[in-house]
Amino acid sequence: MSAKPAHAPARMGDPGSGLKLFAIAYLIFIYGPVLFLPLFSFNDSIFVAFPLTSFTTKWYEQAFADEKMIGALISSLQVGGIVAVTSTILGMFGAKAVTRYQIPGQGLITATIMLPLFIPEIILGISLLILINSVGISLSLITVTIGHIMLCTPFAMAVLSSRLHGFDRSLEEASMDLGETPWMTFWRVTFPLAAPGIVSSLLLTFIVSFDEFLLSFFLAGQEPTLPVYIWSQLRFPNKLPSVLALGALILIASCVLVVVAEWVRQLGTSEQKVGV
């Protein structure tokens, strides 16, 4: 471990410049490998190998000419949209409960809700598969959606809880004191103040659902989601370049959404500091 505080630091605990080099190397380690996807997606060769031959966009054209891929993309977008809205609504309920009321056993309840983050996805997948089988529902995009809601609700609740923690409960009380009902108080005070958190939660849960593979792998029926479709294509070497193209697009889209989500969330909190 090289967490080495330098000598005579300007501030206590200041690390030396060696650590900065390490940090940059670390970022390269995190991002470097992923960059090969976009790189080779523009390479005019069926083989994913050096040397690079010439620039082409034909793999993108090929990917988008694939109707099954378009179908899977639409499925993923639908599932992601429904999951984002549902889990954000559920998360809002939960976040409001844990931030506004003293609830006996709150720690245990919150831990239970957060449990999906700590259980291997394969276990979540097979146990949901057993449940769905026992209830007698056939596998479809609906079962995928149900699984994703379970997975995403903890994320939504975490994001929204921290947002609701960020503003004074007496703001909502002031609204009710001035004659607004709880319902209108939600729309006139809570909602505008929590808006950055809500946007952030919608985006993040959408990404989690859109990128999720293993649950969908177990729960999808005849209609695959995009990650499941990609998985099925990995067996075919001649499909590899178009999978790369697709993967590159997904990664870039995800990155953009994450950055927007985090930015919105941060924007909200910095405003909040002076606001209350």
Binding site: E173, D177, E271
Partner: peptide, 14 residues
């Protein structure tokens, strides 16, 4: 028919 002045004032920041 009561109204309150809160300790934190609870001025709506938005």
């Amino acid at each position: 028919p009561t109204n309150m002045v809160f300790q934190s004032y609870a001025i709506f920041p938005h």
